[in-house]
Simulated scan of single mutants.
Amino acid sequence: MERPHPRRWLPAFALSACLTSPALAEPAIEVFTTAGEPAVNVPSGVAVIELDAPGRLDAELSQDLPADPELAESMMRERMATPEWQEVADRYADSYLGLARAWQLGVEKVPVVVIDGRYVIYGQPDVAEALREADHLLEQEGRR
């Protein structure tokens, strides 16, 4: 993923009621970033997906493997037989699901906050601030 660029707002349908009305269901919020671009002020329950996690896990899993392919395969099979492997395997699967979700949404750059899979704010690592920006922009659109 590329470095962040100036904030960009991609509105779709009326989300303002979701952000301001307690009577309606909370909007689904997803944050896509990388380890080098951490998200801050993330409300509880908000998914933060680090798009570079699969590569980091690949490096972790292949750490200290020998150059000999047969020996490396044997060592990986031993690692996979340990109880710790299930946790790593779950993290690995989750990281690729996050990557697939970003692709599905058409994420172009990070950091990005996606609201209800339809509203996108690029370039804002502060999630609480991105939600305030979204609310403000939707209020402006509602007055037109």
Rank of each mutant, 00 (worst) to 15 (best):
L97Y: 12
P4L: 02
D126I: 02
E87H: 09
A28C: 09
A14S: 13
I115N: 06
V127P: 00
P54Y: 11
D58G: 12
P69E: 04
Y96H: 15
L65R: 03
H136Y: 14
Q104M: 08
L105W: 12
P69N: 08
Y92P: 00
R56P: 03
E141T: 14
D126W: 11
V31T: 04
Q140R: 14
A102G: 10
M80S: 14
V42W: 08
L138P: 12
T82R: 10
S74M: 06
L131P: 09
V114K: 03
G123V: 00
P22L: 07
L138F: 09
Y96V: 12
E2G: 13
R77N: 08
Y119T: 07
V46S: 01
E139N: 14
L71R: 07
R3F: 14
A23V: 15
D58R: 12
P69Q: 08
E60V: 05
Q124H: 06
F13H: 12
M80Q: 07
V40R: 03
M75L: 09
R101M: 06
L65Y: 07
E50V: 08
A100T: 07
T20I: 02
L99E: 03
E60A: 02
Q124Y: 00
L71T: 12
D64W: 04
E70N: 05
T34R: 11
G98T: 11
P66K: 01
A93G: 13
P38L: 08
E87M: 10
D94Q: 15
E60Y: 10
P11V: 08
P27Y: 00
L10N: 12
T82Y: 05
L10P: 15
G106Y: 11
H5W: 13
E50Y: 09
V114M: 09
E108I: 01
S21V: 13
V88G: 11
S21G: 08
E70T: 06
V42M: 10
E37H: 15
R79C: 10
M75C: 03
P43F: 12
M80D: 15
V46R: 02
V107L: 00
P111A: 08
S16R: 03
L105N: 02
E84L: 13
P125N: 01
A12M: 13
P111L: 02
A134K: 09
G45F: 12
V107R: 00
E60H: 07
D68E: 03
A59L: 11
D52N: 14
E139M: 05
S16L: 13
T82L: 14
R118F: 10
A14E: 15
K109T: 15
G98I: 04
V112S: 04
P11N: 12
